[in-house]
């Protein structure tokens, strides 16, 4: 097909792996074989472009050129041919969704930063100019990178607000398309419900479940459980923190800059008023869901 196109468009060229940035004098397309071809802008009419897009995918020059690995991943995700899915990665992997503020930094800059962070090329699948997935192979325990730890330093180097949604590890390609779509789906909604900028799949589950419930029931639950505390932001902040600290009193007191005893006292008060003791797992879980339902 490329050769046929070349006869029509003399400036057509195929992009080779490795050279980083695509020339913006060219309009770029991806073929169904995941090759990237470019045709000089001055050789294209708008009619040509619409015609070409019927069988080629336009390729945004702002994105870093996809590497072989990135093209493979994309192929597997979009392929309906199950044969493709026989390919097995050598290590378990996970998709890590990222998003940063629009129009503040170039995708290429982000890619450089991620490569710096991992000290090697890491496949990145771009959704658009400010969102996408990092595909991370599981590394030895000591080498694995905590997004929670690293997000601040990335933000201070990149000067942009970033969020990460960290998918669960996966060992094979089975249902990869589903995995990919479900992560995309969750990632795009989940950050409305949390103040955190890094969230894992596991942490996101309670959010997702409560959001499935209809609003009336949600409000009813949160009112019934939280009672007069429903608008008491200070107590709610305290409970939130207590859950984030794994029900550890000392840790919570430290984070809240409170004395441990006054924290005890406040939890006792909550217990007296509501009959709920959030130091107990079951009660903690219920209150934690009620807090989510309230949002």
């Amino acid at each position: 097909m490329i050769n046929q196109l070349k006869e029509v468009f003399s400036t057509l060229k195929v992009h080779k792996d490795g050279s980083n940035q695509l020339d913006s004098d060219y309009k770029w397309f991806a073929t169904d074989k995941e090759e990237i071809i470019g045709i000089r802008n001055d050789e294209l009419t708008s009619k040509d472009v619409s015609l070409l897009t019927t069988f080629l995918t336009p390729y945004n020059v702002k994105f870093p050129t996809p590497t072989q690995a990135e093209r493979n991943w994309r192929k597997i995700i979009y392929s309906t041919d199950l044969g493709e899915k026989d390919w097995k990665p050598s290590h378990p992997f996970r998709f890590v969704y990222f998003s940063f503020n629009k129009n503040q930094i170039e995708p290429l800059l982000f890619k450089d930063a991620i490569e710096g962070l991992f000290d090697k090329q890491v496949p990145i699948l771009w959704e658009n100019e400010h969102e996408g997935f990092i595909i991370e192979q599981q590394m030895m325990e000591e080498e694995s990178i905590s997004y929670e730890q690293i997000i601040d330093i990335l933000m201070s180097d990149l000067y942009v607000k970033i969020t990460f949604f960290v998918g669960p590890y996966k060992k094979d390609m089975e249902d990869l398309t589903l995995y990919y779509h479900s992560l995309t789906n969750i990632a795009k909604r989940i950050f409305h419900y949390t103040t955190k900028s890094v969230l894992t799949y596991v942490e996101a589950i309670p959010f997702l479940l409560t959001k499935q419930t209809d609003e009336d029931l949600r409000l009813d639950i949160s009112k019934t459980i939280l009672q007069e505390y429903i608008h008491d932001e200070e107590t709610i902040h305290m409970m939130d923190t207590f859950f984030q600290c794994n029900l550890n009193l000392s840790e919570t007191a430290k984070v809240l800059h409170l004395h441990r005893n006054s924290l005890q006292y406040r939890l006792d008060r909550f217990f007296e008023k509501t009959g709920i003791d959030i130091r107990q797992f079951q009660d903690a879980m219920t209150v934690s869901l009620a807090l989510l339902a309230r949002k």
């Binding site: 710096g116 000290d119 080498e143 905590s146 330093i153 942009v160």
Partner: peptide
């Protein structure tokens, strides 16, 4: 945008890039 505000930030979390030495941690930005 933040990059054009001529500011520098230091956060609570003083995690550094694990693979880079001190020089490169400072130089990376």
């Amino acid at each position: 945008p933040p990059k054009d505000r001529n500011i520098a930030m230091v956060f609570q979390n003083y995690a550094l890039y694990p693979h880079m030495d001190v020089y490169n941690n400072m130089a990376f930005g």
